[in-house]
Structure formats: C-alpha cells, structure tokens
C-alpha cells in the first residue's frame, strides 16, 4: 500500500462539505417551488386546468418539506436549526429559511383549499403571493451558492437565474408526472401540448444560461478549472445536457409542433419520458455544480497558492514493515 498523498493535487482542492445532501436539498427546493408555480399558474387560468393545479399542489409543499429534511440532515447541529433565521440582513440561509417557511405555509393553505373545497377559500391574490415566494425559493437556491466568496465558480449572478429556470422546468416535469399518477384519464391533449411548448422553451433557455454560465466561468482564472472539470464530467454532459435537457426539449417540441392530431395517451407517454429524463438532469446539474466547486487561489508576489479543501493522507503504518 502506497503511503503519502493518494489523491491528485487538483482533486484535493475540490470542496467536499456541500455535496450529496445539499445537492438533494437544492434540487427538491427548486423542484417543489417550480411545481407550485405551475400549479398556481394553472389555478389562475381557470377551472379547465384544475387537474394541473391539483397535481402541482399535491406534490409541491411535500417535496419542499422533504428537501428541508435533507438540509437538516446536513447540519452538524440540527437541533439548533431554529436559530438559523437570525441574520436576515446578510445571510442567504436566514433569508432562505423565512422564504421557505412563508412558501410552505401559503402552498399548504392553497392545498387544503383544493383537496377539501369549501373549507378554505384561497383568493387569487394569495395564489399570486405564493407564486412570488415560489420564485424567491427557486432564486434562493442559487443565491445561496452565489454568496460563497471562497468559491469563485459559484460566486456569480448567473447561478440564481440558472436555478430558477431549472426549478421551473423540473417543476413542470414533476407536475406532468403527478397528473399521470393521480388520474391519467383527466389529462387533456391540448393542455399537454401547451405545457410541452412552455417546457421546450424553458429547456432551450436553460441551455443558453448554462452556456453563458460556463463560458463566463472559463474567462475567470479562479473558476476556469472548475468549469473545465464540470464540462469533463460524463454525468453532466450525458446525464444533464444531453439526456436531461436536449432529449426532453426535442420530445417536447415534437409534441408541440408535430403531434397536433395525437391522442392524450400518446402525448402523456411522450411527456412522461421527457419528464423523467428532465428530473434526473435537474439533479445532476446541481450535483455537478457543487462537486466541481474549487477554492479560490491565494496570490502573493507572482505566486499562486491553492488551499487544499481536505487533507487526504494514507497514514504511515506505524509498527509495521513497509510493503514489498
């Protein structure tokens, strides 16, 4: 067994604090908020879109609540989480806690109003307010990362925009899955065609924002290595870009432009394929961004020093003979 540094120097500069659990939290937060935004829009469109509203509401706040559980699991001291709204003036975690709490309360009230008609009348102004907080939730998941000065790859205004677009798109996909799961016979072909058009457009916008985000990152010395690593990740290129965005966008545009005569069942099957791929892509996008974050280099008198995120040594086998 070799003794010494086992990982490459570059590998050790990648952050390891925020990975799986935080990626799931960011994904579920954006996903649930996006699903509510779709449900809220459908609620404002009228009774004809009731199935879309119901599916979105059934899934949005439980998904966000599950996401918050992942955040709690990530904390070193989860029992003190109630303290986390103490610095609204400067901390994005504090702001996020307030935004999420308001969003969950509003979407829950709306949900109760829909599942038991007559119990609570949720007005249109309430829906618009909840949709606004859903947008804030999606933006917050990106703003949380962009507030990290130590990681120049994340320290950009493009991330909140990217996470918002991705949240809207994955929310749309989740709603489609919810519609099929609740009662696929209620899905209208024309509704799906409209949703496909919106989804396809969002996928194209997301591709453009990802291009802009990575292009701008490669132009900054401190984030170039992160951008290169992200573009070299198979899970990002094949999982997110190709299978999670390009393939769903093609399916959705075919549904919108080329399946005008198709029945609802065919449209639903096509939409479900696009939705499942899109959801996987949405998670892989966040995971790729988190897992390629590299600490900023420290520059002094023409030297560049890179802090190592985590020391990873094979310890010397004390009291044993060295291996042959």
């Amino acid at each position: 067994m070799a003794v010494g540094i086992v990982k490459s120097r570059v590998e050790r500069q990648v952050q390891e604090e925020w990975k799986g659990l935080v990626a799931i939290y960011l994904f579920l937060g954006g996903l649930g908020a996006g699903a509510y935004f779709v449900a809220g829009t459908a609620a404002l469109l009228g009774e004809g879109w009731a199935h879309v509203t119901t599916a979105g509401l059934y899934l949005s706040f439980p998904v966000v609540c599950i996401g918050m559980l992942f955040l709690l699991a990530h904390l070193g001291k989860p029992m003190r989480a109630f303290l986390s709204a103490s610095k609204l003036g400067s901390s994005w975690i504090s702001r996020g806690v307030v935004i999420l709490t308001i969003f969950i309360v509003l979407s829950f009230i709306h949900f109760i109003g829909v599942i038991s008609p007559g119990s609570i009348e949720f007005p249109a102004a309430g829906v618009i307010l909840a949709m606004l907080f859903a947008l804030f939730t999606m933006l917050y998941t990106g703003a949380l990362l962009s507030g990290s000065k130590g990681y120049p790859f994340w320290n950009t205004a493009a991330l909140p925009v990217l996470f918002m677009i991705s949240g809207l798109l994955t929310g749309l996909f989740l709603t489609i899955i919810g519609m099929a799961a609740i009662d696929s016979s209620l899905i209208g072909a024309e509704q799906l065609r409209v949703m496909a058009g919106v989804g396809g457009t969002l996928a194209v916008i997301e591709l453009l924002v990802i291009f802009f985000f990575l292009h701008s990152a490669t132009r900054v010395r401190n984030s170039r290595e992160s951008a290169k690593r992200m573009m070299g990740k198979g899970s990002f290129i094949f999982g997110d870009l190709i299978l999670g965005l390009i393939v769903p966008a093609i399916i959705l545009f075919v549904m919108y432009f080329g399946m005008a005569e198709a029945d609802a069942a065919t449209m639903t099957n096509a939409a479900l394929v696009a939705s499942v791929l899109g959801l996987i892509g949405g998670f892989l996008l966040r995971y790729a961004i988190l897992s390629t974050g590299m600490a900023t280099s420290l520059d002094m008198a023409g030297f560049q020093f890179r802090p190592i995120a985590k020391l990873d040594f094979e310890r010397a086998p004390i009291g044993k003979l060295p291996p042959e």
Binding site: L75, G76, K77, P78, A81
Partner: peptide, 21 residues
C-alpha cells in the same frame, strides 16, 4: 450558536474554517 451548516467555510476565501464531524 453554531448549527454546523458550513456556509462560513464556503464563504471564507482563505480556507481558514474547519468542520470537525
């Protein structure tokens, strides 16, 4: 008061923070 969220570690450009799990 610390909840162990690691946000300070992400924000510090000098890599001065450590979380001990």
């Amino acid at each position: 008061k610390c909840i162990g969220c690691s946000y300070c570690k992400m924000a510090c450009p000098y890599g001065a923070r450590y979380m001990v799990e």
